[in-house]
């Protein structure tokens, strides 16, 4: 028996919107730790890891570890039927081949059940070791989304370079090239509007903008984004989900021939 009641049901709606274009089918894993997902995109270039900790749910019952295979587009379709203020409960019986999403309006005058078929997904689970990153950039998520969108109208790849001067996002394409430099800026009143750069070593890496743009679909989940870079590793683009956990995107770099 599994029963997870999430008062902020719209968090789940936002999570689905953030991952459904990157990943088609995925196993959601449920354990005493929380509700999680790890999946790669079809070309195995990017990986998404989601964690919603059990403490973040109003009610969390998970009698034994369960892995539920879901088509994310279908799940998103069902969650779109929940109101933004609705309480969402995820329910599944042991051994069942369906999952039920229950939506309750805040004043309990409307209750809806949406039952979705589960699927068997043979997915590869990867171990991601803790890493020391050469540079960690924390910036407003809307600013990062804007930069990715702007640069993708010029080129297909972005070079992210971190130096003492700041973080530079560069692209080049047929019509020309573009560079956006963001400097550390902690003087603004609100911490969510500041840019901080923690640099241990300068680093410069090249990534496909198509994936970066896809990651920015998670922008509604968090006002800030953290970009962790190391010269020999995939970049980690992390959106914290307040009081609940995170959604992390890992993207393998492009290297010169």
């Amino acid at each position: 028996m599994l029963e997870l009641r999430l008062v902020q049901g719209n968090l789940l709606k936002k999570v689905l919107e953030a991952v459904k274009d990157l990943v088609t089918d995925a196993n959601f894993d449920c354990s005493s730790t929380g509700f999680s997902l790890q999946a790669m995109d079809s070309s195995h270039v990017a990986l998404v890891a989601l964690l919603l900790r059990s403490e973040g749910f109003e009610h969390y019952r998970c009698d034994r570890n369960v892995s539920m295979g879901m088509n994310l587009n279908n799940m998103a379709k069902m969650l779109k039927c929940a109101g933004n203020d609705d309480i969402v409960t995820i329910k599944a019986d042991d051994g069942s081949d369906t999952v039920t999403f229950m939506f309750e309006s805040p004043n309990q005058d409307k209750i809806a059940d949406f039952e979705m078929k589960l699927m068997d997904i043979d997915s590869e689970h990867l171990g991601i070791p803790e890493a020391e990153y050469h540079a960690i950039v924390r910036m407003p998520s809307s600013e990062f989304a804007r930069i990715c969108k702007d640069l993708s109208s010029i080129g297909d790849t972005v070079v992210i370079s971190v130096t003492k001067e700041g973080v530079k996002f560069s692209t080049r394409g047929d019509i020309g090239n573009a560079n956006v430099v963001c400097r550390q800026n902690t003087t603004v009143d609100k911490p969510e509007e500041s840019t901080t750069i923690e640099m241990h070593e300068p680093v410069s890496l090249t990534f496909a903008l198509r994936y970066m743009n896809s990651f920015t679909k998670a922008t509604p989940l968090s006002s800030t984004v953290t970009i962790s870079l190391s010269s020999e590793l995939p970049v980690v683009v992390e959106y914290k989900i307040a009081e609940m956990g995170y959604i992390r995107f890992y993207l393998a770099p492009k290297i010169e021939d």
């Binding site: 790669m40 070309s43 195995h44 270039v45 990017a46 990986l47 590869e124 689970h125 990867l126 171990g127 991601i128 070791p129 790849t157 090249t206 496909a208 590793l233 995939p234 890992y250 993207l251 393998a252 770099p253 492009k254 290297i255 010169e256 021939d257």
Partner: peptide, 14 residues
């Protein structure tokens, strides 16, 4: 142009 690496080249299956 540059070659796109795969995420599985960095992280191992568990």
């Amino acid at each position: 142009g540059p070659i796109q690496l795969s995420i599985t080249e960095f992280y191992r299956s568990t």
